[in-house]
Simulated assay, not measured.
Amino acid sequence: MSLSVLNQYKQNSILTAAPEELTLMLFDGAIKFVNLGKIHIENGEIEKANSAILRAQDIIVELDSSLDMKYEISKNLDEIYKFILNRLIAANLKKDIAPLDESLELLNEIRDTWKELTREIKKMRYGNKQVKI
């Protein structure tokens, strides 16, 4: 499969995704970039680490800005996102992996919960038909 076909597939996936699926994609992206940041720090690739961590930060900012603050869960998530963002900034400034590990633990937990929620939403939307996430 050529790169342009793969990029077109990715773009179509994003354009046709339901809101809950887009959120799941954001979590996946944040996790990916935090992991890349770790790898680049371990390899001494400071500029690449900086770039990856900044991308993760951008995603966390996007997730935080999408919260509807009239719900209590949004207020809780806002605090978690701000904590993660602060840990990412600390990791980037010090080129330290420990804050990245803390961020990954939280991101994976929230992502897994979101994935299960997405699965339940799809069941409600489409009945008991098997849905792939």
Rank of each mutant, 00 (worst) to 15 (best):
I46D: 11
A91S: 11
I84H: 00
A90Y: 03
R87Y: 00
L88Y: 06
D101V: 13
K95V: 09
I59E: 04
L77V: 07
Y81I: 02
K95S: 08
Q57F: 06
A91R: 03
V34C: 07
K48P: 00
A90T: 14
K95M: 14
L100G: 06
F33P: 00
I39T: 15
V61F: 15
K38P: 01
I97K: 07
D96G: 02
I80P: 04
K75C: 01
K94W: 07
R87M: 10
E47I: 13
L88G: 02
L88S: 04
K48W: 00
Y81A: 08
Y81M: 02
K94H: 10
G37S: 07
V61H: 12
K32A: 14
I84E: 05
R55M: 14
L36Y: 05
L63I: 11
E42W: 00
D64Y: 05
S66V: 04
E45Q: 15
I60K: 01
A30R: 06
L54C: 10
I59A: 01
K82R: 10
K70T: 15
F83G: 00
K95H: 14
G37M: 03
D78P: 00
N35L: 13
D96R: 08
D96K: 09
I41G: 03
S65V: 10
D78S: 07
S74T: 08
K32G: 08
A49T: 13
N92F: 04
S65R: 14
K38C: 06
N43H: 10
L54R: 10
I60T: 08
K95N: 11
L63D: 05
D96S: 14
D101H: 12
L63K: 10
G29L: 05
E102I: 05
N76E: 11
K82M: 04
N86H: 09
F83L: 02
A90S: 13
L100T: 07
D68Q: 12
I41V: 15
S65A: 14
L77Q: 01
I73Q: 12
A91E: 01
D96F: 03
N92E: 08
L85M: 05
A30W: 03
E62P: 07
Y81G: 03
D68R: 03
F83H: 07
E72N: 13
L63G: 06
L100S: 09
I41N: 01
P99V: 13
Q57I: 14
S51M: 12
R87F: 01
N43E: 12
L93I: 11
E45G: 09
Y81N: 00
V61Q: 12
Y81C: 03
K48R: 11
L93E: 11
K48N: 11
V34M: 04
I60A: 04
E62F: 13
L85I: 04
S51G: 06
I89Y: 02
A52T: 06
A91I: 02
D64I: 09
I73E: 12
I97P: 06
I39C: 02
I97R: 04
F33Q: 08
A52D: 07
A90K: 14
M69D: 13
F83T: 06
K38N: 03
A98T: 15
L67E: 08
E45K: 14
N86G: 11
K75W: 01
D78C: 01
I46P: 00
K32V: 09
Y71C: 08
L77H: 05
N76G: 10
L36K: 12
A90I: 09
E62T: 15
I41F: 05
E72S: 12
R55A: 14
S51A: 15
R55V: 07
F83I: 05
K38L: 08
